[in-house]
Amino acid sequence: MINLQSFLVVGMILFLLGIFGILTRKNAIALLMGIELMLNGVALTFAAFDRFIKPAEMVNPIDGKVFVIFIIILAAAEAAIALAIIIQVFGRYEDINLEDLKRMKE
């Protein structure tokens, strides 16, 4: 049960649910949650590869974990910025519906 494929499947499911989320939601915060799900799926995949795959000659054995850390860092930065934008948009339009953001181009 504990093997590479099972972890990859879990990561894949999280990623695809994230995609489903961002494709169907129109609320910006819900969209952000979808993105977080996708990032988690990918990070889990990296961690699984790191754990199970035999490293190539030049590759450091814990490179995969480094990637995960960077993904988490990026997610944090992205969430902070995204929420700042959302709050600002809300203050301006009283709404955070993505369709309304079209008005920004005017």
């Binding site: 952000l32 977080e36 997610a75 929420l83 709050i87 009283e94 709404d95 519906n97 369709e99």
Partner: peptide, 27 residues
Amino acid sequence: IYVGGILVLIIFGILLTRTVFDMSLYD
């Protein structure tokens, strides 16, 4: 980071824009 930071941030975001949380979430 995720549970302690980002999620709290998201919940803050939801509460700060609370007039919308009953709206239909689907496009």
